[in-house]
């Protein structure tokens, strides 16, 4: 089994980095525009109607959750649309597999790449929040490795969908049935204790909830509670997801 894995995945990661570098400005602009429009639209607009949420201005509550949601979106889009395009449309994966690179290297390269790009998306928002003087504590730096793990988690889940997808249209199911409801339930927009107890239990089964539970306190400058538990859920989801994505990729491409 070990023979299947190598550092050759770095060449796959670097391939994607080179494409990104050509379009980096547009890409980061895209990473920022959408979340910031929501953030300030809802944060100021809706926030002015609310006194405090969880003891803080709504803008700050929403901002600290949005960092995590944007990271998830970054990883998800890359692992779905971009990876599918390389796998199915451009046949880039086929070309790579003819070189001394295994399918495991390709999938792991895509996985780490999607998480890297997601980290850029999350970090870009943190920088804007810092410039706007909404972030004050150096603890926020600890959110960067967490965001990378959040990226790995959703990149793995995205790659499962990609290796199952017959076409781009298939991704709509994933967004409608999983990503969008999860974003609503995971504490990005409002505190979990607003939900009925049964739904709260369900919310704690969603990986994004654990990401938000780690990242929000760090952005606000306090240590999160239950760090090991949250990390374990994210890490286990990431690794189980990768394992399944690898299995599905072999079934799809090596036959």
């Amino acid at each position: 089994m070990m023979a299947l894995f190598s550092l050759r995945w770095i060449a796959v990661w670097r391939r994607n980095l080179l494409v990104w570098r050509k379009l980096a400005f547009t890409s980061v602009l895209g990473n920022l525009a959408d979340p910031l429009i929501y953030l300030f639209g809802l944060g100021y607009g809706l926030g002015s109607l609310l006194s405090k949420v969880d003891g803080m201005p709504y803008l700050l509550f929403l901002a600290s959750g949005s960092v995590c949601a944007s990271t998830m979106n970054g990883a998800t889009f890359e692992a779905l649309y971009s990876a599918f395009s390389r796998m199915q449309v451009q046949r880039t994966w086929d070309a790579i597999l003819n070189a001394p690179v295994s399918l495991e290297d390709v999938v792991i390269g895509e996985w780490v790449w999607a998480a890297s790009k997601a980290l850029v998306a999350g970090a870009a928002i943190l920088i804007v929040l810092t410039i706007m003087n909404l972030v004050h504590s150096p603890l926020v730096l600890w959110s960067l490795p967490i965001l990378f793990i959040v990226g790995l988690t959703f990149a793995a889940l995205g790659l499962i969908v990609t290796t199952l997808a017959p076409s781009f249209d298939f991704f709509m199911y994933y967004f409608t049935l999983f990503v969008t409801p999860m974003t609503m339930l995971s504490g990005v927009f409002f505190p979990l204790d607003q939900l009925p107890p049964a739904v709260q239990t369900l919310a704690w089964l969603l990986p994004l909830t654990h990401g938000v539970a780690l990242v929000r306190p760090l952005v606000l400058g306090v240590w999160p509670a239950d760090i090991a538990l949250h990390l374990a859920v994210l890490g286990a989801t990431a690794l189980a997801g990768l394992w399944l994505a690898l299995h599905l990729a072999r079934r799809r491409l090596l036959r």
């Binding site: 060449a11 080179l18 001394p100």
Partner: peptide
């Protein structure tokens, strides 16, 4: 060296970049 039946050159890159990127897959 393999020349596949259907061209799968990397459309995101120039000719020279295609060669560099592919060479990296060989280490």
């Amino acid at each position: 060296g393999i020349v596949p039946q259907f061209d799968n050159l990397d459309p995101d890159f120039t000719c020279a970049e295609n060669l560099v990127i592919y060479g990296r897959y060989f280490g």
